[in-house]
């Protein structure tokens, strides 16, 4: 088996993550799109590890899984905090840091 299909799949997954971030306004979907992009990078790292025949790539992927877990905990806490403030999941509502109102 050649590595090209794996690379094509990882590329498509990364692109789908970007598409999800751009096109959706639901906070949970944005969060899961970020997770999808991180996971596609994990897939590329595993393929690299298999190509070289040593474990370094897999170890980076394992550390990335831990980083993904930390990111998930923080992002979910932020979503719960934001939902408690405004009772919505629309990312356009949360514009506290934007200058749109003051312009």
């Amino acid at each position: 088996m050649t590595p090209e299909p794996f690379f094509a799949l990882a590329t498509v997954l990364f692109s789908l993550g970007i598409v999800g971030i751009i096109s959706r306004r639901n906070l949970f979907v944005i969060y899961m799109s970020i997770e999808l992009m991180l996971s596609s990078v994990n897939l590329i790292l595993a393929v690299f590890s298999r190509l070289h025949g040593d474990m370094n790539g897999s170890v980076i992927a394992l550390l990335m899984i831990a980083v993904i877990a930390a990111e998930a905990a923080l992002f979910l806490a932020i979503i719960v905090g934001l939902y408690r403030q405004r009772r919505t999941l629309d990312s356009d509502v949360f514009s506290k840091l934007s200058q749109r109102d003051t312009l």
Binding site: S39, A46, S49, I65, I68, A69, A72, A73
Partner: peptide, 23 residues
């Protein structure tokens, strides 16, 4: 499929079992 058995276990335990389920 990439013969990475421990990464498979870690993905099942952490990404599926912890992250997605807690989401």
């Amino acid at each position: 499929l990439l013969e990475n058995s421990f990464l498979f276990l870690a993905q099942i335990m952490v990404s599926v079992g912890a992250v997605v389920v807690i989401s």
